[in-house]
Simulated assay, not measured.
Amino acid sequence: MRGSRSCGCQRYAKNERAQYVQLIIIPVAFTLGAFIGMMVTSAGTVLYGQILWDPLQLINQWDNRAAAFFASAAFMLTTLGTNISANSLSAANDMTVLFPRYINIRRGQVVCAVLGGWALCPWEILASAQGFLTFMNGYTVFLGPFAAIMVTDYWLLHRGRVDVPAMYRPRGRYRYTYGFNWRAVLAMIIAVPPLLPGLINSINPKIRVGGDSFLFDIAWIYGFCVSSAVYYVASSLFPAKETYMDEPILADDAALDAACDLKYGDDFEHASSMEDKASLQAEVKSVDDQA
């Protein structure tokens, strides 16, 4: 059947099964890391009489220089690895999509280093535990709606039937309206603004926002539920019909699709149904087999 062969679901994974290990590693590693952080901070309170939430400040209290050196070196290596894999590389990938003519992976990483390492003043974020937690909580205002839109679109609306090669075509079936899916924009507009007063209050408690500050405490859950409902209703009432298919089209079909694209142009790009597209592909494949 179409798309029955394995394809890479992650950009740099060898196959789709490479991500399954995260089901075990991520919960265990994150839980263990959080537990060790709380345990070490509590021990530091007993030993040094102060709450040292920053591990480097705790290491600075040690008298053993060798232990302090190796522990600091481990944190340096961890920081570099985490930022390269989780921040620098992903930001560079996004920038190459936005400005492919001017930015490649290497240039994108340099831009990320300048913005994230200097322009955003990360030392101010890490100046206090409260400031750091406020900064991290601010992410939830946007991450909840983002996650809801992706989950709702993939699982509830399209039920996993997506056209992977078309996602990389500027004028493919996922172009929507001038490159924007207005249903997703609408979901963001409705879900995010009610959370902003609470975010402002968390940054500056002197600014009173009344009961809105309590809504910020459940920002991720609120944003996820509201944006999911809005996106589902809007997509159901005004469906983007060109994005709905009977079967998924995976990366294995990219070469055949490219040949069809060259032969049929816009007729193939905007085929109204899977049957129409399949018939065009069958014609190209038969010609290739005869050749």
Rank of each mutant, 00 (worst) to 15 (best):
R2G: 05
G3I: 14
S4W: 13
R5W: 04
C7H: 14
G8H: 11
R11D: 06
A18R: 06
I24E: 07
V28P: 05
A29L: 13
A34Y: 07
I36R: 00
M38D: 13
T41F: 01
A43H: 01
G44P: 02
T45C: 08
D54E: 14
D54I: 05
D54A: 13
D54W: 08
L56C: 08
L58H: 09
W62P: 03
D63G: 10
F69D: 13
A73F: 12
A73E: 10
T79V: 12
G81R: 08
G81Y: 07
G81W: 05
I84P: 01
S85N: 07
S85Y: 02
A86F: 11
N87I: 10
S88W: 02
S90L: 15
M95K: 02
T96I: 00
L98D: 05
L98V: 15
F99W: 15
R101I: 00
Y102A: 02
N104K: 11
I105V: 07
R107P: 02
R107E: 01
G108M: 04
Q109P: 01
Q109G: 11
C112H: 08
L115N: 11
A119W: 13
L120N: 03
C121K: 14
W123F: 11
E124P: 00
I125G: 00
L126Y: 14
A127R: 15
S128R: 09
S128D: 12
Q130M: 01
G131C: 11
F132V: 02
F132L: 12
M136N: 14
G138S: 10
F142E: 11
G144Y: 03
P145Q: 03
A147H: 01
A148K: 01
A148T: 01
I149D: 07
L157C: 04
R161V: 05
V164M: 13
P165D: 09
P170E: 07
P170D: 05
P170G: 08
G172Y: 11
T177C: 13
A184E: 10
L186N: 05
M188Q: 10
V192E: 10
L195D: 09
G198K: 06
K206P: 06
I207G: 06
I207T: 14
R208S: 13
G210F: 12
G211F: 10
L215P: 06
F216R: 05
D217V: 08
Y222L: 04
G223N: 02
A229G: 01
A229Q: 01
V230H: 03
F238W: 12
F238G: 00
T243K: 04
M245D: 10
L250Q: 05
A251Y: 07
A254I: 11
D257P: 00
D261K: 04
D261G: 13
L262G: 10
Y264V: 08
A271M: 09
S272A: 12
M274C: 04
E275V: 07
V284Y: 02
V287R: 15
V287E: 15
A291H: 05
